[in-house]
Write a protein that binds this DNA or RNA. Structure first.
Lengths: 245, 245
DNA sequence: CAGGCAGCGGAAACTAGATTCTCACCCACC
DNA sequence: GGTGGGTGAGAATCTAGTTTCCGCTGCCTG
């Protein structure tokens, strides 16, 4: 008996090839099903969250909406927190993709402006399509598990670092490390959009962009950009960015 | 019946003077005691929080430490959330006072630098004296009740607005509204210190200050300040200031 | 001094929500 | 036809916040 169990459990790593094939075959189906089910829970959760406009739903509500039982839920997720986290990562992944796609054309500073403004809009709490994950859960998540938020933001930071790097190569920026600049820009856009701590009226996307631009770009370049922007969008009171709740 | 109840409950406001005097006298003692007890709960909560280094304590723990019962706790606070909020407001008030006191001397930009750096330090999560209220609870609070956070920050914003106004009057700043600049500065310092979303190494206070300074001050003034700071700490290494002229 | 009353301590009860457990069932596979 | 792992349904458990109950103690008032 000792021999048998030893043969089964202590097989030399050289034999592991066929073993993994067998395991892979016999678990592929299970994994596919698991992935599908998890997705169904995620969809249900998204639906509930959009209805309630907040992350304060109960696990039961999600389960009721999904074609599975509570028991299964806990088979696929460690708990509510992990559900939220997964949802957050998924949404963030999509959002980052679309931010990147929407800002892939043009001069470096144009792209940077585009991506930061879009990021601001995405994180603003009072937007048309409520995103409780970004405006509400992200803050909580950030308080509890900053590493995971950082991981979710990483692709965006990477991308913005590249754009910043290009702008720097074009001689448009003050000297500095692109990656750290990118982090500062993302933080500023995200948090200033998310909530505002001091102003009676929320800080607008225009203000955030001007602040960020000034922070990293020398005056002559910034003046030129901002003047051009102002003469193109004549009105002094930028009506299109006023949040209409 | 209607007459009596009407006389008692609908007394004309002209009679309310003596009424309030009576009420005031008979409740003053009660109010003083209440205030003292509430303070004892607050002290106990602070102690528990410092021990645990987080706001994840239970009401029971606080009550056990305070010389009063759970029942009394709920007589003085609407619940745990209100306890935390009160604590936050108290700490924030003290912190703001000390920020203001520590930055009351000097030229406007020196004062601004001082107050923003101190604010950064205050909000940094990995401080010697852990401040779970600022690094942890503030985020949660901000997600749930931004108005209250805004109220707690208001005195600081007012103060910084003044400093910014003085700097502007001295011709050191680009044109802009002091109050909104102040809000952006506070947001940037607070949130960038609190958590960092994108950098492998945390953004430092120096970086935040430079970012903020650049954002609101024209290049010639900023260059001058930053050069001076750099030559004071280390030998000159700034050959290139502005690639595009 | 008796009665009423407001505040309080102590402890149990209540609640909501998350998480886990029990048990029966079903169905692909042997 | 068996059978075992995964599953549905829902009860049970656990946690932490909140509320309630009961009896005690001062204190004011008639």
């Amino acid at each position: 008996m000792a021999g048998v169990s030893s043969a089964l459990t202590e097989a030399p790593s050289g034999e592991s090839a066929w073993r993994s094939r067998v395991i892979e075959r016999s678990t592929r189906v299970a994994r596919e099903r698991a992935s599908e089910r998890a997705q169904q829970f995620l969809d249900a959760a998204r639906a509930v969250m959009n209805e309630k406009g907040s992350t304060e739903f109960t696990v039961q509500e999600v389960v009721d909406r999904a074609p599975h039982s509570l028991r299964s839920f806990y088979q696929y997720f460690d708990g509510k927190y992990e559900l939220l986290l997964t949802l957050f990562e998924e949404e963030m992944g999509l959002a980052v993709d679309s931010l990147i796609a929407a800002s892939s054309e043009g001069a470096p500073l144009d792209r940077l402006e585009r991506v930061l403004r879009d990021l601001y809009d995405l994180c603003a709490p009072s937007r048309v399509s409520k995103q409780p994950l970004f405006s509400e859960f992200a803050f909580r998540l950030l308080a509890d598990h900053p590493e995971e938020v950082a991981a979710a933001f990483a692709p965006l930071i990477n991308y913005i670092s590249e754009v910043v790097g290009e702008a720097a190569d074009a001689g448009l920026l003050r000297p500095g490390r692109p990656r750290r600049m990118a982090a500062l820009l993302v933080q500023t856009a995200t948090f200033t959009a998310g909530r505002n701590v001091g102003a009676r009226q929320p800080i607008t996307g225009d203000e955030v962009w001007e602040f960020c631009l000034r922070a990293i770009v020398p005056d002559n370049v910034a003046d030129q950009r901002l003047e051009r922007a102002q003469t193109m969008t004549r009105p002094p009171l930028t009506p299109n960015t006023c949040p209409v709740t």
